[in-house]
Design a protein around this nucleic acid. Structure first.
Lengths: 239, 239
DNA sequence: CGAGCGCTTGACAGATCTCAATAAAAGTGG
DNA sequence: CCACTTTTATTGAGATCTGTCAAGCGCTCG
């Protein structure tokens, strides 16, 4: 259940008191709260909207993690996006949401009426920026789903959770002998499987295999330590 | 090779002579030419830009078909989008294109400088509309790549080429006894395979099987007649 | 302590891929 | 217009990867 505490003044991300113009840097980081969005909190595993619901609001994820998924009539599920703070969701070309939005953790979300979106040039600019970025992620995910092996998919997924590594701007290990990282997954094996286009058993087997090979250590099923980030990165298929 | 005939005044889609304001309906259909884009023609199989090239221009497809694809270092390819007139491409979150853009047919493309894009609120609005729509297609494609069988993928692909059928607004057959359709593919088996996340052999086998079962007729390898559109639609996995 | 849920592991099946040969189509040059 | 080459598509046989089904393990919580 959602808390449904509407923080209309924007204690969470607003900047209402400051009356000076925003710098460019600040503009890049401005949130929907700057445009009169209200903030809503959700618990983990809440559904924000269902695929097919009438699309009335646009959402911006403030804190936490959310997944968007689609279902086939026979129950097969594909998680199409895993969202992070700053990502937007809820836009629809037609007047229905094309995916179900479900929280993975407790989250805080900025919600804004779709009519306001159409009216504001500032919001449009922000949308272009966000959508372009999410589109790039979707392209990479299409490569994963269409062309990568199970091991490459899991390795790519784990690398995706390491900040500033694995992508184009990968810094490489600062210290080759101390290139570990602790991950908190926030997703069940089933959710991971549905994101990676695999079955739960295959995900489990790959994770076990990575453990056996000393590439990761499993502290709890949702807490994984990467022993060598670079070693894992080499298994993603992008090298 | 591209013809590189720059039609700066917009004979192809411009509306320059008409000096009255655009109606809402017209605004929805306005092209980049209305914002000073130049028009360029390309031959079939021209590369418009490569993944990694510095992103300078934004493109709008006017006529023809274009694919966007990404390559893995070992040569595996994934076609991530197949574009139709009205679609845009070339936006990049960073300053490099994230995909290669290659024509499938001879095409006409509106090109506009990225700086102009940032300046115009009208363009931003159009971008939001286009990106939202393309995002929806990418979501559906993720379901295809992650969760559909080879037959379902090929059936979905063929249905995608039938106007106004298969999607949510599917009209159903006007006449159940006369529910055929002629398709022109514009893609080789390899390109189709790379779009559907399959091998060329699997695509070929599925197509042969559909023929054997009387669902399609193959007039030439790139000209396929669908005998019963509804019958094919039932094989897409969405029913 | 037992129930329930999520995760792991094993054995086997099956779909798709790989490799290889052949066929068909498209392009080339005389 | 006809060989000839090159490219593209089809088909077959076998291998492999991932999925399916089933059993067991290990938390967590009441």
């Amino acid at each position: 259940m959602a808390y449904l505490e509407h923080d209309t003044q924007g204690q969470f991300g607003g900047r209402g008191i400051l009356a000076r113009p925003l710098s460019i840097k600040e503009k890049e980081n401005e949130t929907f709260v700057d445009f009169g969005a209200k903030t809503t909190n959700y618990d983990a595993h809440d559904v924000i909207y269902y695929e097919g619901d009438p699309a009335k609001r646009l959402y911006e994820l403030a804190t936490g993690t959310i997944m968007l998924f689609k279902l086939l009539p026979d129950g097969r599920r594909q998680v199409v996006e895993v969202l992070r703070p700053g990502d937007i969701f809820g836009l629809s070309a037609i007047d229905e949401y094309d995916c179900t939005a479900e929280t993975l953790t407790s989250t805080s979300v900025h919600e804004i009426d779709l009519r306001k979106v159409e009216a504001s040039a500032e919001i449009q600019r922000k949308l272009t920026r966000c959508l372009t970025n999410q589109m790039k992620v979707l392209h990479e995910h299409a490569v994963l789903l269409g062309r990568k092996s199970a091991v490459e998919r899991v390795a790519s997924f784990l690398m995706y959770l390491v900040p500033d590594r694995g992508g184009l701007g990968c810094a490489g290990p600062e210290d080759a002998d101390n290139d570990g990282f602790d991950l908190q997954l926030h997703m069940t094996r089933q959710e991971i499987a549905d994101y990676l286009g695999l079955t739960i058993e295959t995900v489990s087997r790959v994770v076990s295999d990575l453990k056996k090979r000393g590439i990761i250590r499993i502290d709890r099923s949702d807490k994984i330590h990467l022993n060598k980030v670079c070693g894992l990165c080499r298994m993603t298929g992008i090298h």
